[in-house]
Design a protein around this nucleic acid. Structure first.
Length: 286
DNA sequence: GAAACTGTTTGAAT
DNA sequence: AATTCAAACAGTTT
């Protein structure tokens, strides 16, 4: 489900709803979802206060009193919501954090891909390789053009899966990768090391701006994303290519195509986003 | 009804 | 070392 703007939207909602609340007890209905094991996970959280919720890439970091952090990843379908104590749980609710104020914070996830893990605050990277290797946040300060030139120049990987690699840049997923490539007029099959400096500058600008705009729009709801308040995001109304196969390109009227790139559905305009000649030759030889 | 999709990550294999 | 592919799971679409 969620890419960086959706996770950030959830983070902001949770900070308003549950920061300051104290855990009474926790129920885990799907033990595979938590680390350490269910008994230790539930025992560790009793009586802790939720101080605030941070974010790194697509990970939520729940900061508890006593220097304990819960690292939570929503993967494809994970959702948090807050309900009054005792309201009936649904079929796909897997973890319930009962709060002392007679509310409960619930985690629901139809596909059960999401994971949550307790680590001492400050030890997140030491215990989780994916956090240790995470690339810079897609912001003006963290994602510099010099860094972009360095990492793109070193890889022959095609740009679409390159953008999905969280160790290079944090936060982009399948929707926003397609969107920023369309905005930048770059073909998703272009090898990373064939992008010019000018293209990298354009791509960088669009990544930073698109993430900020999508956060302003409270994320994109195409399947089931909802905010911590149970509301849909709004940014799906601003998508240019994702889910628009067969529709005319907003810039040139050409039909948007959908292809598979590295096993992921990939949407682009064949006219606005042509493959560079060099890449085309390499493609023909295959 | 079967097969192929779906916003992600990982671990194993190459 | 860098990349690719299947697997984790359940629901929806073709």
């Amino acid at each position: 489900m969620p890419e960086l703007p959706e996770v950030e939207t959830v983070r902001r909602g949770l900070n308003r709803l549950v920061a300051g609340a104290t855990i009474d007890h926790v129920e885990v209905f799907y033990p595979k979802m938590v680390t350490p094991d269910r008994d230790e996970f539930t025992a560790e959280l009793i009586g802790r206060q939720i101080e605030r919720i941070d974010r790194r890439g697509k990970y939520l970091l729940f900061r508890f009193s006593g220097d304990l952090t819960m690292v939570s990843h929503l993967r494809m379908e994970g959702k948090y919501d807050v309900q009054a104590e005792g309201s009936p749980i649904t079929k796909h609710t897997h973890v319930v954090f009962h709060l002392k104020d007679d509310r409960e914070l619930r985690y629901t996830d139809t596909r059960k891909f999401g994971r949550m893990r307790l680590v001492p605050t400050g030890q997140e990277a030491a215990e989780m390789p994916s956090l240790a290797k995470m690339g810079p946040e897609p912001t003006e300060e963290a994602l510099t053009l010099a860094y972009m030139q360095t990492i793109f120049g070193k890889s022959h990987k095609v740009v679409k899966p390159f953008l999905l690699d969280q160790s290079r840049i944090a936060g982009l997923g399948n929707i926003y990768a397609d969107e920023v490539l369309w905005l930048s007029k770059i073909n998703p099959l272009t090898p990373a090391d064939e992008l010019t400096k000018a293209q990298l500058a354009t791509l960088r600008r669009n990544i930073i701006e698109e993430m900020a705009l999508a956060i302003q729009g409270h994320g994109t709801t195409v399947h089931s994303f909802s905010t911590a308040f149970g509301e849909a995001g709004q940014f799906q109304n601003h998508l240019h290519v994702y889910g628009r196969e067969g529709e005319p390109c907003e810039r040139c009227g050409t039909e948007i195509e959908k292809i598979k790139v590295a096993q992921r559905g990939t949407h682009f305009c064949p006219k606005c986003q042509p493959l560079p000649a060099a890449a085309l030759e390499a493609f023909d030889r295959d």
